[in-house]
Design a protein around this nucleic acid. Structure first.
Lengths: 149, 149
DNA sequence: TCTCACATTTCGTTAGGCCGAACTAAATAA
DNA sequence: TTATTTAGTTCGGCCTAACGAAATGTGAGA
């Protein structure tokens, strides 16, 4: 395959790959009964650990009032727990209830298994190449997203 | 790096890559002033070509009433055009207005340029490997999504 | 103690997007 | 022609998730 064709094929494959990623993500959220904001918040908590309500407001750009409602919804669905900060009892700490999201791990089973099978077909060198590509490509996407802010 | 570590790193990198993909996608939609449904509809029209309102209803699972409003919004934003079917004048054909979407191509510029630069650092053989990986990995995601239906 | 500042919640409102029911217009059957 | 079905639209109502303003409870300094 000529390099030109190769690059064209990569553009197309990348587009499709992105599409399936978004679709999978959307399907998972729907199954968990989560809205966009709720899911983004869970992701925040996964990455940064327990946060105060105000910190969630900062990270998400929502007003404090909206965050209250957001936490209510997540709590009602069993995904997070509210705790009073013992240091500063005005603050409310929000933490993920791992027991609440555990049941949904099954949603990822097919994906995880499929990817494991896929990875199994590559040599270590090839996997290193793929790993590097994924990291650098994620960085490109991150930068492009920031450029849209 | 041991294969075990390699696989763990891939799982993590894959997760992050998926995240950045979704975030980029979300940011683009926001910039275009599109809701989730509107965007899904545009994607439908891109993939399947012009569709009748009723066909959009079938594909999206929305009621005809909702589709009417949906088309109104897309039309008002300049992304689609309504046409009467000349065969069956009850039917309304919805088609993408490429001139309406063209202005937003710039949103992808950074991403496209970044990926081109990234691809430029690989040999043809390496790109073939990446292409194959993207295709197979997209298929895994597609299958996993279908499994959630 | 008495403010005053701060973190969060509550309340009332608004905008978006969906639905069902009733409607118009066009095609089709009797 | 007339009755029925089909395709979309309009209307009114509802729900979700956001917001601003005011209330609540807590901390901290004079």
């Amino acid at each position: 395959m000529s390099r030109e064709r190769l690059l064209a094929a990569l553009a197309e494959a990348g587009r499709k790959h992105g599409n399936t990623t978004v679709m999978f993500h959307t399907a998972v959220s729907a199954r968990m009964g989560l809205g966009m904001t709720e899911e983004k918040t869970l992701d925040l908590l996964r990455r940064l650990g327990p946060l105060a309500a105000g910190e969630i407001a900062e990270h998400s750009g929502l007003t404090p009032a909206s965050v209250s409602g957001l936490i209510d919804r997540l709590e009602r669905k069993g995904f997070v727990r509210r705790t009073r900060d013992t240091e500063d009892r005005r603050r409310v700490i929000v933490e993920i209830r791992h027991d609440g999201i555990a049941g949904f791990g099954a949603l990822f089973e097919d994906l995880v298994r499929g990817l494991e099978e896929l990875y199994a077909t590559y040599t270590d060198e090839q996997l290193e190449l793929i790993l590097d590509f994924l990291r650098r490509s994620a960085e490109v996407q991150r930068a492009a997203t920031a450029g849209l802010g």
